[in-house]
Every structure is written in C-alpha cells, then in structure tokens.
Design a protein around this nucleic acid. Structure first.
Length: 456
DNA sequence: GAGCTTCGGAGACCTGGATC
DNA sequence: GATCCAGGTCTCCGAAGCTC
C-alpha cells in the first residue's frame, strides 16, 4: 500500500511539474486551472496519508510557511558583477573597440554578439545540486548576498528540480532577474489602496521589497516572476552564450525570447532602435538592452574589472526628465565625514517615484553649472526606476538666489575636513583639531547663510 | 531609525606609454 | 631612469524606497 502511494505521489509530482513548465515557463497550458487544482489537491491528500514521502522538492512545499528572523549571508561561487552602461551609439562603438583591442585586434567581422533585453528587477543566483534547487541569493555586493531561498521557492517559474543528469552536469548556478509583472503590480497596489496601505512606488521596488520579506507566504502572494539569462555549470559543456540559453530552456527555466545573435557589431544597432519604443508594449519593465560577446572563450579572454565584465555592456535608453525648482542647497555629511552639497527641490514625480533631492557632487560642479537657489532646473534620473544619483542637467535662470559656497575643504590641508563621530565631535582628519575646525565650520556656515543642521 | 537594495559619480590610485 | 600625462580601475558615498 505504502509502495503504491509512493509511486502515485511520484507520478503526480512529475505531472504537476510538467504543467508548471507549460503554464509558468512556456505560457501554453494544456489543462484548465480547475484541472490543475484537482491534481494539486490529489497530491496534497496523498501526502497527508503518507507524510513520510513529503519532501521539500514537492510542488506542495513551495511555501514552506516558516517565518525566518533574518537572512543569512551567502558567498557567491563566482562574483556577480553588474554591467557597465552606455547611453549612445558612440559609446557602444567604444565598447566594441575595447573588445577588439582586448582580443588582440581581432577582425571585427568575426566577433559575434548576443543581444537581449535588460529587465528592471533584482539579480539573483539560483544554485542546483544533483538536480535540486538548494539555494537562492541576492547579488548583494557582488561577492556576498543574502540567502532568500525560501522566498525564491515561491516563484512558480523557478523549477525546484531539474534534469541535470540528462545534461551530464553535477553543479549548476543559474542567474536571472526577478521582477514583478506590471499587471501584478497594478493589482497589488489596488489591494493596498483598498486596505489603506501605502502604494509601492514602482514594480522594481515592489519586487525588491517582496524578496526581503521574512514571511515567504506573503512573498508568494506578490506574484513575482523571473527571467534567467546565464549559468555556470560543472563540468562546462558549452561554448557560446547562445548555447547556455538552449541548455537553460531544456532544463525548464523561463527565458525571455526577445534575444538575437548578431553576426557582427553593425547588426546590433537596429535592435537598439527597434526596442526604444517597443519596450513600452511589454508587460514588464525593461530599461535597456544587454550586448554580450557570444563566444565563452572570448569572454574568458576579455575577463572583467572588479566591477564589470569586459565582454558585456548595457545600453540604457534615455531617462525621463522633469522640470522643477531649487528650493535650497544644503550640506550633507556622510558617515565617513565627506560633505556633499545637495539641492532640495520642489518634489516632482518622475519615472515611478517622487524626487525631492539631487546631489550636486562638489563645489566645482556647482560652479560649472552655476546652480543657485531659486533656479528652474531640469532633472533626470540616471538609474531609471530607482532614483539613485539624480543629475541636474540644465539650469534655466528664472530668479536668482544666493550663490552657494561649500566649506568642504580645509583652507590649510585642502583635504577632507572633518569626520562626525557618534558623540558629535568634529575632527579634522589631517590636523586632529576638533575645536578649531568646528569654529571654522560654524563661521563658514553663518557667513554663507547655510543650513548647518547636519553639522550640529 | 537601522539596514538593506542597485548603480552612478567623484576622486584616489594604478598602469603603461611618451618624452626628456 | 625620472617625470609627466592619459586612461583605466577601484573604492567610497549617496540617492529613494523598502522591510524590520
């Protein structure tokens, strides 16, 4: 009886996994939702009768239900690098020139490129051992990320088991981008509004927040999705990036099929133009394209800097812009003592979030752009959906205000001025003269009518 | 409020080539 | 060999929004 139960559970699991791939990965279900639910219920009933056969790879165990207290740190087997960005065709050409140079002035016509969409989500790494999904992690600082396995297991397009034996590999790490489809985002915000909760600013932030929830059951309700785009396997049986895509597809992962193999660099450029407008018709956020050298041996030869691979680059489409007013300019002190002038702006909604502050970087930058309080300025977000460093790109004088002066340099040592300690002691890095320095700073502040709240 | 996400900018640092 | 310069690389920091 027990043996029969085990066999039936096994068949049901395989059947459900197959339908998961058809529904969540290939987007072509062959049974109705009700039929799928009946299969799942049958499996749950059998696992209830034979609890000794319940395993964490079972489709019924996607949501473990266990609420964790914190996320553990995970060290990546190979660094998870981000991509260098380009914003124009000229910069793309420079990338191509660096590739040619890096390969010893290889003939341009012999470099094949792989072009794919750049999804606006969170990069994750999925680790499989002996065909079982054992760990999922965020990118973190590239070397270490957070263990979010429990939350990733709730994403139904991530297979919990894969046929690694068919590919003759023992270890597999898959990299992809978790995102929230626009429809899921709209529905989620609608529910939050009905519940008088604060809406999420944009799908990327909603996805980021959802993956860092301590309760996987809530993550499961957020309807996240994933596109995978890369892998490292042992032993490595592949020679090109396009072959990795084929392998990932055979293993049952969800890939985005809007990708192209370009026989030469010139063939890349039409796709840049094609997706400039077409990206807006997709049901998920895309902020550019990724252009990769297709040959893995070339990728290896080109290597990487500490931050970016030299064999791939992102092409980012022009960011949304908005006009607003500089209300004030204040000094902001970082935790190491570095002072950054920041423009306080009339809040303006741009690319999914409200921007009210913009870094002005340093005194030279302020002088170069001649930015003053009261100026009308055009801002653009340099990181698209998440407002990271906001660039002030144009200053249109409407009403002149006080010219900002920045007391960021010690008149004597010309170095970093001070470092605020927890006890609010100001200390000159070069001279170690807190009292004198504090006096000098307060003098500067009063002379220039500056906001000194940050220094107090 | 703390601590996390991602990624761009600034500036320090490093490296290699040119010139003396 | 010393010096200068340009370009590449690295590290630090901060942005807004999120969860805890």
């Amino acid at each position: 009886m027990s043996k029969q139960g085990e066999g039936k559970i096994d068949r049901l699991r395989k059947n459900i996994r197959q339908h998961d791939i058809l529904y969540y990965v290939k987007d072509s279900p062959t049974i109705s939702d009700r039929e799928y639910d009946l299969l799942m219920r049958e499996l749950q009933d059998l696992e209830g009768k034979f609890p000794e056969f319940i395993c964490k790879e079972s489709p019924t165990q996607r949501v473990g239900g266990k609420v964790s207290e914190k996320f553990n740190t995970v060290r990546h087997s190979t660094p998870m690098l981000s991509l260098d960005n380009t914003y124009s065709v000229d910069e793309l050409k420079e990338f191509h020139a660096r590739v040619l140079k890096g390969l010893g002035n290889f003939p341009s016509k012999d470099i094949e490129y792989f072009v794919e969409l750049k999804f606006d989500g969170l990069a994750v790494a999925l680790t499989y051992e002996k065909g079982v999904f054992v760990q999922g992690a965020t990118r973190g600082n590239g070397k270490e990320g957070e263990d979010i396995t429990a939350n990733l297991r709730t994403i139904k397009s991530i297979p919990l088991t894969i046929p690694m034996d068919k590919e003759k590999i023992n270890f597999l790490e898959v990299r992809g981008e978790v995102f929230m489809p626009r429809e899921s985002f709209r529905e989620l915000n609608k529910i939050r509004e009905e519940d008088n909760e604060v809406s999420f600013a944009n799908p990327r932030n909603a996805a980021a927040g959802s993956l860092r929830l301590l309760d996987p059951a809530i993550t499961a309700s957020r309807r996240l999705d994933i596109f995978v785009y890369g892998l490292s396997a042992e032993p490595v049986p592949i020679k090109t990036h396009s072959e990795t895509q084929n392998m990932l597809q055979r293993l049952g992962f969800k890939l985005n099929m809007n990708h192209y193999i370009c026989g030469c660099f010139e063939n890349v450029l039409p796709y840049v133009e094609k997706w400039r407008t077409e990206k807006n018709n997709l049901e998920y956020d895309v902020d550019g394209l990724v252009i990769k050298v297709n040959s893995l041996s070339f990728q290896k030869k080109l290597g990487a800097t500490t931050k970016f691979p030299r064999w791939a680059v992102a092409y980012k489409y022009e960011a949304e812009k908005a006009e607003t007013k500089v209300e004030n300019i204040v000094c902001q002190v970082g935790r190491t003592g570095a002072i950054t002038p920041v423009a306080l702006l009339t809040p303006v909604f741009i690319s999914g979030s409200t921007v009210s502050r913009a870094t002005l970087h340093n005194e030279d930058e302020i002088k170069r752009k001649d930015i003053r309080v009261g100026d009308r300025v055009v801002i653009e977000k340099s990181g698209e959906i998440i407002p990271k460093v906001v660039k002030v790109i144009l200053s249109t004088k409407v009403k002149r205000g006080a010219l900002f002066k920045m007391p960021a340099q010690c008149p004597e040592c010309r170095g970093v001025l001070f470092r605020p300690e927890k006890e609010a002691i100001l200390r000159c890095v070069n001279y170690g003269c807190p009292a004198q320095l504090k006096e000098r700073l307060l003098h500067f502040a009063s002379r220039n009518a500056m906001d000194i709240d940050h220094l107090a």
